[in-house]
Design a protein around this nucleic acid. Structure first.
Length: 245
DNA sequence: AGCACA
């Protein structure tokens, strides 16, 4: 079917090997943030670089540079709206090519810190006040990278409500909605596939839940991503979150 | 809200 865009906001998003993420939790330290982003996104392909900055203009945002566009496309689609440090990720393609790509490309040209106010080249001030001047807004320049669709509403695979205050990423996963006949061994077989696996702990008094420990939070995050929603039975999609400390 | 490569 052709796309059913009725008039208004045709996304026409131009793809990019780099995804731009915002609505990130600004309280997370940069190093941890980048590490976690890497852990969460590396399942979609080789990551060349994760960039994030803490300046006013750039906090809460990050760039994840993939080796190829297919990975970036998959990452964007699959992780759109994903709850990450309590906030749904908002993902778009980056507007421009990342330096690291351009360098590999041979197309990299070191930017001279453009701070020339008199340069007509990038004098692209937005209409702060209507300036009857010249209305230079010719069509031209692609305003293409549309806003995101509406996908912030990824429900948890369990179909239940989001926890109020999910624990921050850590090396232990909390697994819910397991069938009662599920044994620790069955869980181990699933979770031991992912690197860093240490152990499964079930709670005798509370069937249906388990704790799964990994060496570090990156490893637990990868496992969570992989097994989130996994159905041991049709009625039991796993609901995985980080264990509270 | 906010698109950089320190």
């Amino acid at each position: 079917m052709s796309n059913a865009t009725s008039g208004g906001e045709t996304p026409a998003i131009s793809t990019n090997m780099t995804i731009y993420i915002n609505n990130l939790n600004e309280k997370i330290k940069l190093e941890e943030l980048k590490k976690s982003l890497h852990a969460v996104f590396s399942q979609f392909g080789k990551i060349l670089e994760v960039l994030a900055f803490k300046t006013l203009k750039h906090k809460g945002q990050a760039w994840v540079v993939f080796e190829d566009v297919a990975s970036a496309m998959e990452a964007l689609k699959r992780m759109q709206g994903f709850p990450f440090y309590d906030k749904p990720m908002r993902i778009q393609y980056a507007k421009t090519k990342s330096d690291i790509i351009a360098k590999a490309d041979g197309t990299f040209v070191p930017r001279e810190r453009r701070r020339r106010p008199d340069d007509k080249a990038e004098k692209r001030r937005r209409e702060q006040h209507r300036d009857a001047n010249q209305a230079g807004l010719n069509s031209a320049y692609g305003g293409t990278y549309g806003t995101l669709p509406l996908l912030s509403q990824l429900p948890y695979p369990g179909g239940s409500k989001l926890p109020e205050a999910p624990a921050a990423p850590n090396n232990i996963l909390f697994v819910e909605n397991l069938p009662h006949e599920c044994t620790p061994m069955m869980l181990q077989m699933l979770f031991c596939q992912y690197p860093g696996f240490k152990e499964v702990r079930t709670v005798e008094t509370k069937p249906g839940i388990a704790f799964v420990e990994y060496g570090d939070e990156m490893q637990s995050t990868v496992s969570m991503q992989a097994l989130q929603g996994f159905k041991m039975t049709a009625q039991n999609p796993m609901v995985i979150s980080y264990a509270k400390k």
